[in-house]
Amino acid sequence: MTELVERRRVMDEAGMRRAIRRIAHEIVERAGDTDRLALVGVRTRGVPLARRLAQVIAEAEGVGVPVGELDITLYRDDVFDGLAAPEVRPTLLPFEVEGRTVVLVDDVLYTGRTVRAALDALMDWGRPRRICLAVLVDRGHRELPIHADFVGATVETTRDESIAVRLSETDAEDAVVLRSRPEERGESHGT
């Protein structure tokens, strides 16, 4: 596979901090009642994002919003398209889903297929009152009728390009970068 080259920084550390702070406030504002609120990160990078959101909310509102971790592998519509069955990590939802307002958190919203799988996965755990979607970056090119309720940044991309969200928890820095192949044409990449 061709190595992707970094083209441009979409968000730096400060930008990311601001975006997360803003999303957290919007969530609280929209939810009204934080008692029944829960944040569920979609593995992998949605999980640390959800934790950061929870932390901001805790600092601002003085309430602890529970955070869950959702692995959507078993719900993907392309699970066996690769040569081997992909890794499955546990789903951890340390709260009752029933009757809650659940905010799904992911790093990038692209085709919408991941969110579709996440919605199915979440519903199998119970019947939430409402599900919202928070993403750090919306890069367009939806293949399903799905939209995000809370967006950190909207970025114009082509299908050839890829958006990489790097988080200090997993990647040693906080940044969002746009990458593409060295030559102009190629298959689409991204999440």
């Binding site: 719900y75 499955v88 789903t91 996965a121 755990w125």
Partner: peptide
């Protein structure tokens, strides 16, 4: 490890995945 990830399915409301 994979089996460990599958243990939670039996604890859900809907004990089934579409895989």
């Amino acid at each position: 490890d994979l089996a460990e990830s599958f243990t939670d399915i039996s604890r859900r409301r809907i004990k089934k995945v579409p895989t």
